[in-house]
Design a protein around this nucleic acid. Structure first.
Lengths: 185, 185
DNA sequence: AACTTTCGCTACGCTACCGTAGCGTAGCGA
DNA sequence: TCGCTACGCTACGGTAGCGTAGCGAAAGTT
């Protein structure tokens, strides 16, 4: 159905684009640089996408991170595990460096705004699930609002990453989890 | 001492730059557009700043928002007032539209990272002060960590603005304040 | 083996911007 | 009134980057 050559070049191009987005940001990423790094010719890029924006959008879409649903048996355990995971992602994975640029770009590009929404939703889901399990176990109050828990829990974590630029050390995570748990009772 | 002509053109240029930053973002803001909108000649811009980056930095610096220290007599009142104020700023003032771009630019430009740090610090200060007053009144535990309170309180507010893009309605603010208060006891 | 499709390559045209030079003019201060 | 300084204007040189055209070669397909 699909020519393996197309799949190959497509993957090489998107990988290179992601690398460059991480290194140079949205504004600094050029089609020419993507071509150079991927080994694909610029013409090949334009054969698969109509313009630069489409390429960047596809690149961002290509790395929507896998959600890591962890079921440790307690809400406390689930949240701590999740936060550690998030910390790792926010400091190592390419995703992290992309977030600020994505936030900015989403402000003006509706297409990227959708990608961002998908990102956010995928981030929130494990929290929702953990809360649902906790309610089922009787660990959390039945009327606990999963949405609010997600805001409350994820807010400080992202705030540290984006605004105050401090690390998510264990003590901090533990305190945020503690407060979050308290709000579910 | 300072020529009024310099002050006048400087202000016109920075105002125009801020407007354009809000509308077009960092990448889309050009010196030529700033010149056109401000009524100043491009040469005048380059007489006052060495290059484009310096102009944009100055523009961002020129709108560091005034901190609104509100002392209502209770930590609850202080926080609610602060959150409403923040909501207003985050949805109307030019500051708001600039934040995502600033976050992204700070990722690569150390100069702007400093501006961002100043921004953040100024945001956090009223919270610190409110906590200090609450401790003095005996309303909050003496060992309450103002830094943590700021993270806990501001995190969800900014998260809503940047990531989940939902409004800061009264019910949400009230719940966040409630949880924050609980953490100080 | 014959074909079809995609590829990489080179070479462009074009536009948008950056940053500078030189000029005559208008506002400012003494 | 008279210098001084900043101003706006026009005109450039130079660069980076987008997107396209046309080609022969290579990799797939039947």
């Amino acid at each position: 159905m699909t020519d393996p050559r197309v799949a190959r070049s497509r993957r090489a191009i998107l990988d290179a684009a992601v690398e460059l987005l991480v290194e140079q940001g949205f504004a600094g990423t050029t089609v020419e640089a993507i071509a150079a790094r991927s080994g694909a010719a610029k013409t090949t890029i334009y054969r698969q996408w109509p313009d630069k924006h489409a390429v960047l959008r596809a690149a961002v879409e290509s790395i929507v991170p896998a959600a890591a649903p962890s079921d440790t048996g307690s809400l406390h355990g689930d949240l701590v595990t999740f936060a550690r995971d998030l910390d790792r992602i926010l400091h190592t994975a390419p995703t992290s460096a992309l977030i600020p640029g994505l936030l900015d770009a989403a402000e003006r590009d509706p297409g990227l705004a959708k990608v961002l929404a998908a990102f956010t939703a995928r981030r929130r889901k494990p929290v929702h699930d953990a809360v649902a399990r906790a309610i089922a176990r009787g660990e959390a109050a039945a009327n606990t609002d999963p949405e609010f828990v997600a805001d409350l829990f994820l807010g400080p974590l992202f705030y540290r990453r984006l605004l105050s630029r401090e690390p998510l050390d264990d003590a901090f995570v533990e305190r945020v989890v503690e407060v979050t748990l308290a709000s579910t009772r």
